[in-house]
Design a protein around this nucleic acid. Sequence first.
DNA 1: TAGATTGTTAATCGATTAACAATC
DNA 2: TAGATTGTTAATCGATTAACAATC
Lengths: 211, 211
Amino acid sequence: MFNISSGGRKIPKAVIKRLSLYSRVLQAMEMRSVEKISSMELGEKLGLNPAQVRKDLAYFGQFGVRGVGYYVAELRKSIKRILGTDREVRVGLIGVGNLGLALLSYGGFARQGFRIVAAFDNDKRKVGSVKNNIEIFNVHELEEKIKVRAIDLAILAVPADAAQEIADRVVKAGISAILNFVPTRLVVPDDVKVHYVDLAIEIESLTYYLR
Amino acid sequence: MFNISSGGRKIPKAVIKRLSLYSRVLQAMEMRSVEKISSMELGEKLGLNPAQVRKDLAYFGQFGVRGVGYYVAELRKSIKRILGTDREVRVGLIGVGNLGLALLSYGGFARQGFRIVAAFDNDKRKVGSVKNNIEIFNVHELEEKIKVRAIDLAILAVPADAAQEIADRVVKAGISAILNFVPTRLVVPDDVKVHYVDLAIEIESLTYYLR
DNA sequence: TAGATTGTTAATCGATTAACAATC
DNA sequence: TAGATTGTTAATCGATTAACAATC
C-alpha cells in the first residue's frame, strides 16, 4: 500500500477531500465522454476557485497541459492512484445496529471501489446471518477476520461505550484507518488516521441557521 | 425562530460546529453533576486549544467567571439557546431507502431534541406504513405536510437525480435548512443553508492515509 | 491578598486567491 | 503566431494560538 509521493510537504486534509470530489466529477465527465476539462470548469462544478484546483493538483505533480487543460480520463486515473482507490479497498464494519445495517446496504461504497468484506456484532441473533451478501461475525472473531480477510479499513458503528475498546483492538490487529460514526473521541497512535462522521453534530449545528 | 445576536460579525461555520461539541461535553458533565469547567478542561476533552474555546464563546457574549471558569449547566443552556436547540426542532426526512431508514431509527437525533415528524417516499409499498413511530407519506404530500406539521428542517436521502427537484420543493415550501446526504451540489437561494454529509467522500479520502 | 482563569488583543500560522511567466 | 490555460509565486484573507491585563 503506497501513495504517490508528495515530496515531503504535508498535504492539508482539505486537499485530500477535494481530490475525492474531483475524482467524482471526472468520473461523471468520463461517462459523458468528455475528453478534457479546465481548472475553471472543474472548479465551477464544485464551487471552488480555479487556482485552488490547480494548486491542489500541483501538490502531487503536473497533470495538465498548458493552453489545453486536463485530460479527463488521465487525471482521474492519477487521482485514484494518489488516493489509493485504484485498487479494491477491503473494509470491515463493526456494529450492525440501525446505522451499521444502513451502511451494509449503502450502494455508495461499492460504487467507489470499496468492498465490505466482513461485518461484526455481539448480538447472537445477528451473528451468522448474511446481509446484502456480507456475513455477520461474532465480534470475538474480529482480530482473526481482519487478518484472514486482509481488511484495510474499519468502520465503527458501535455504541459509544464500546468504541474505544474496539478501536484498540482493530489498531492492534494492524488497521491504520478508521471511519468513526460514534460520537467518541478515539485515542489511537499517531500513525492511525480516524475520520469522524457525527450526524448529531451536523444536524445540531445546522439548526443555528434556521430562520 | 431566532439566534442570540452575534453583534454583526459573521461567525465561522467551524465555530458553530464546535459549539455543538461543547454542548455535548457539557451535557455529559452535567449528568455527572460537575458544577464548573475551565476552558482548558473543556478544550482537552475535544483536543482543542483553550484560547480557542474562550474565543468561540466570546463571539456570543461573556459566559465565564474570571478565576473560576464556566458554570456547566449555565453554559450549556446558553449554548443550546445560541444554537436554537433549546426548543424542539421538527424534522422531515425525504427518501426512505437504506440510509433514510437508518436515520429514522437513529437514536442520536431524538437525544439532541430533534424530532422527525414525517418521512416521505415515492414507493407505494412504503407509503402509509409507520417506522419507529414515524409515518411515511407519499412525496406528493411534501408541501402540505411541511406546512401542517410545521417542519423546520429537511433531511435529504433521495437518489441523486431527484435531489435538486426535492430541494426546490422544500425551499419553496419555506424550509431554510437542509441536511443533504445526496452527493449532489444543490442550488438554493443564499438564505437557505445546506450541510453536506458525503459518506463516499469520507471513506475515499480516508483511503489516502492507509499505510 | 495570592492564585486562577477569563476576555481580548496581538502574533502566528495556514489556506485561499490573484497574478503572471511559461508554454502548449 | 495569437489565444488559452497551466504551474507557481506573491498577496490576501481567515483562523488558530500566545500573551496578558482584567477581575473573580
